[in-house]
């Protein structure tokens, strides 16, 4: 009962993380902020939802799958985000106006 409740709460928080990331994707001004928003949500949000599901149905099989899913999801969402961010840098996507890139060479120039 208490596990079920905790599972539900975690799953809802996870879903809320996705909503906030979606809003960030729409409102943030450059690819880098948007990637940052999505990479975090894909990692943390999926972890919350899957752990919530495991708490609702706490069996050895479920917990094993969730542990695997969490480990793989955390690593792959971050790697995906980094790969897209690097591709954005390499293909010259500019940073939002006001981004402080002082002391870092080889980045796309800002639009004034």
């Amino acid at each position: 009962m208490i596990l079920q409740l905790m599972g539900d709460v975690l799953a809802v928080i996870g879903a809320a993380v996705f909503v906030v990331a979606a809003i960030g994707l729409w409102r943030f001004r450059d690819p880098y902020a948007r990637i940052s928003s999505v990479a975090t949500a894909a990692g943390v949000g999926v972890v919350l939802v899957t752990v919530g599901a495991a708490l609702s149905d706490p069996e050895v099989g479920t917990v094993t799958k969730v542990v695997l899913a969490v480990a793989l999801q955390l690593v792959t969402s971050a790697v995906g985000g980094i790969a897209i961010a690097r591709a954005a840098v390499e293909s010259g996507h500019v940073f939002a106006a006001g981004t402080d890139t002082e002391g870092v060479d080889g980045l796309p120039e800002q639009v004034p």
Partner: peptide, 17 residues
Amino acid sequence: LAVLVTLTPGTLALGVV
């Protein structure tokens, strides 16, 4: 380190130089 930085809300690893 790049994975941890990227998973932290608000920060993102852009690559290694």
